[in-house]
């Protein structure tokens, strides 16, 4: 892939997330993207809390982060899909995210067929050695109309 193509793809992936109203609502920031990989961060916010007793972020907000990150990884893959949608997503919650800490998701689109992209993702807080959650997902690939 040429540098120009590479830059174009990164720009597309960045635009992809900036154009998503719900990603903006959750304050998601694309910190790294390219070649089927994406990294998105979400700052701690009391509005996203699932249980005020503990201050822990709701699993649903972590799911939204993982889903967005998976979609961005698919968009940045050299297979060059014009758009994508989630088909299936499984999330394992290993532990509660530490209150007050930023959550970062990393997703990898590790295989694509003509119509399906396969993704795995991990979410961590300030302790990168103990993931908060992991996910695997399948996404659609929309081929450009000939």
């Amino acid at each position: 892939m040429s540098d120009e193509q590479h830059i174009r793809r990164e720009m597309l992936a960045r635009k992809f997330i900036e154009a998503i109203p719900h990603a903006r609502a959750l304050g998601m920031v694309l910190t790294n993207v390219g070649d089927g990989h994406a990294e998105i961060a979400m700052d701690y916010d009391t509005r996203f809390v699932g249980d005020p007793e503990t201050g822990v972020i709701h699993g649903g907000a972590v799911s939204a982060l993982m889903d967005t990150c998976g979609g961005a990884a698919v968009m940045s893959h050299p297979a060059a899909t014009v758009s994508t949608a989630t088909l299936g997503l499984r999330i394992d919650y290993m532990r509660a995210a530490t209150p007050g800490q930023r959550i970062t998701a990393r997703a990898e689109c590790y295989h694509v067929t003509r119509s399906v992209a396969f993704v795995r993702a991990t979410a961590v807080d300030d302790d990168p050695d103990r993931p908060v959650a992991t996910a695997t997902g399948t996404f659609t690939i929309e081929r450009p109309k000939a």
């Binding site: 109203p21 719900h22 990603a23 959750l26 799911s63 939204a64 889903d67 949608a85 997503l89």
Partner: peptide
């Protein structure tokens, strides 16, 4: 709650949550 402004469609993460 929008995830795809082109369609437009609900965000998959909203549905998940």
């Amino acid at each position: 709650l929008i995830g795809n402004p082109m369609l437009p469609a609900l965000h998959g993460g909203v549905t998940a949550a």
